[in-house]
């Protein structure tokens, strides 16, 4: 496809257009992604997650400066929430990325979640591939402000960074399943504030309680991203993590898991759209009415609804 060859030749507009095509599920998007696939797999994908206001965008901004200093090129995907009521979104992460926004080795794209839960947007994984094929050495994925269960970033990233700040909740918050289990690197940002040492210590204790034998000990770093403090250490930790993955075979394992997850997600999506395409208009409304009027329960309704699919299969 023309847009693919334009993109591969370094055309920024083609890159931006293809991302929109994929986000809008426009015709041709799938074909373009298939054509691009063989050019992917070279970028180091880094996920950055943490609660709202913890400084994720600023960390991304400063980390990008470090990477640029080393002569690397960087793609940034910044995800913000879409309103469940209007479908609109205010994407404001660029405000904190002004220092790098004009560098020709940087490409920043903001994405609304568009109804997707889990911390990423529906098409974030595809956009990562597009930036990867475009030739970016590093791709930084900033999630929506994440609470406890927005852990989907691990499905997309090789290295996941959790950004915490002093003074948020007590240690029981940290024992709950979820976000603490996915971090490869932890940072206590805004470490010039009171309580930073406590937060780092609590994190350390919680991580230490994990009995499971782990060959990678997630480092806990204290940063003041706004001043660029300790971002070089963060960069070093990222390199160490990647080397670790490559040396231990963890990289292959992770890649395999991600490919499996993605494949199953694609199949799930296909089955859904296959079914919906074969559904008469008004059918869903009719079922909803029937369940409302207690004529049928939703479980049996779903069985009945999928019956024709079964028929197809027998043919």
């Amino acid at each position: 496809m023309e847009i693919v060859s334009e993109l591969l030749s370094g055309d920024r507009r083609a890159l931006a257009r293809l991302i929109s095509m994929v986000e809008n599920l426009e015709p041709g998007a799938k074909k373009a992604l298939s054509e691009l696939y063989s050019y992917t797999g070279n970028a180091h994908v880094i996920g950055i997650t943490g609660p709202p206001g913890s400084g994720k965008s600023t960390v991304v901004d400063k980390l990008t400066l470090e990477l640029l200093d080393e002569g690397k090129s960087v793609g940034i995907i910044a995800v913000d929430p879409t309103s469940p009521f209007t479908g609109g979104a205010l994407l404001g992460d660029r405000v904190r990325m002004n220092e790098v926004s004009l560098d020709e080795d940087v490409f920043i794209r903001s994405m609304g979640t568009r109804g997707h839960l889990g911390g990423l947007a529906t098409k974030t994984r595809d956009v990562i591939k597009i930036l990867d094929a475009f030739g970016k050495d590093f791709i930084l994925v900033e999630t929506v402000g994440a609470g406890q269960s927005e852990v989907e970033v691990v499905k997309a990233a090789h290295t996941t960074i959790i950004v915490e700040v002093p003074g948020l909740g007590d240690d029981i918050q940290a024992i709950k399943a979820g976000i603490l289990e996915i971090g490869d690197i932890f940072i206590v940002n805004k470490a010039d504030r009171d309580g930073a040492d406590n937060t780092a210590r609590e994190l350390d204790t919680m991580l230490g309680m994990n009995q499971e034998e782990k060959d990678w000990e997630p480092p806990i770093l204290k940063t003041v991203a706004k001043e660029g403090k300790n971002i070089d250490e963060l960069n070093d930790a990222i390199s160490s993590h990647l080397s670790h993955l490559k040396e231990t075979g963890g990289f292959e394992e992770l890649k395999k898991k991600q490919i499996r997850d993605e494949f199953l997600d694609i199949v799930r999506e296909k089955i859904y759209s296959y079914t919906m395409e074969r559904t008469a208009e008004g059918k869903i409304d009719e079922i909803v009415e029937n369940v409302m009027n207690s004529e049928i329960d939703p479980y049996s309704a779903a069985e009945d609804f999928l019956e024709p699919l079964e028929e197809d299969r027998k043919d």
Binding site: A16, A89, L90, L91, G92, N98, S101
Partner: peptide, 21 residues
């Protein structure tokens, strides 16, 4: 979907952001 870039933007920054987004 509204991309907000903040204060003190140069025309170069604005155009680059518009293209990327």
């Amino acid at each position: 979907e509204v991309i907000y870039t903040g204060l003190h933007q140069t025309p170069e920054q604005i155009v680059e952001a518009a293209i990327q987004e």
